[in-house]
Simulated assay, not measured.
Amino acid sequence: MSTEAPAAGRIVLLTASHRVAPGLLSWPAWQTLHAADRVVCADEAHPQLPYLREAGITVEHTALTAEELVDACAGSTSRAGGAGAEGPGEGRTIVVLPSGEGDRALTDGLARLAGSGRVQMPDLELLPGSYDLPGARLLDLVQVMDRIRRECPWSSQQTHEGLAKYGIEEAYELVEAIEDGDRDELREELGDVLLQVVFHAAIAQEDEAEPFSIDDVAGTIVEKLIHRHPHVFGDATAETPEEVREHWLRTKAIEKQRDSVTDGIPLGQPGLALAAKLASRVRTAGLEVPLPAGEGIGYALLALAVRAEANGEDPEAALRAAARAYRDAVRAAEGQE
Rank of each mutant, 00 (worst) to 15 (best):
D235H: 11
G89K: 07
M121T: 01
W27R: 15
E169F: 07
L274G: 09
Y131V: 09
V59E: 01
E54H: 12
V197L: 10
S2Q: 14
G9V: 02
E188R: 06
V289L: 12
G109Q: 07
L163W: 13
R250M: 03
Q120G: 13
P50V: 07
T77P: 02
L302Y: 08
A8M: 00
S78F: 03
S156G: 11
P128V: 03
L127F: 12
R245H: 12
A74H: 11
Y166I: 15
S155C: 07
R327T: 12
P50N: 14
I221T: 13
R92S: 03
V142G: 01
P266V: 04
T62E: 10
I203T: 00
S155I: 08
I297H: 14
V282I: 15
L301R: 15
I94S: 00
A35P: 00
G129I: 06
F212W: 14
R228C: 03
Q157F: 04
Y326S: 12
H229L: 10
V59W: 06
L225N: 09
E151Y: 03
D184V: 08
A236C: 02
D37A: 05
R258C: 09
T284L: 09
E101S: 02
V40G: 07
C41E: 01
A55R: 15
I178Q: 11
V193Y: 05
A42T: 05
R258G: 07
G23A: 05
E173L: 14
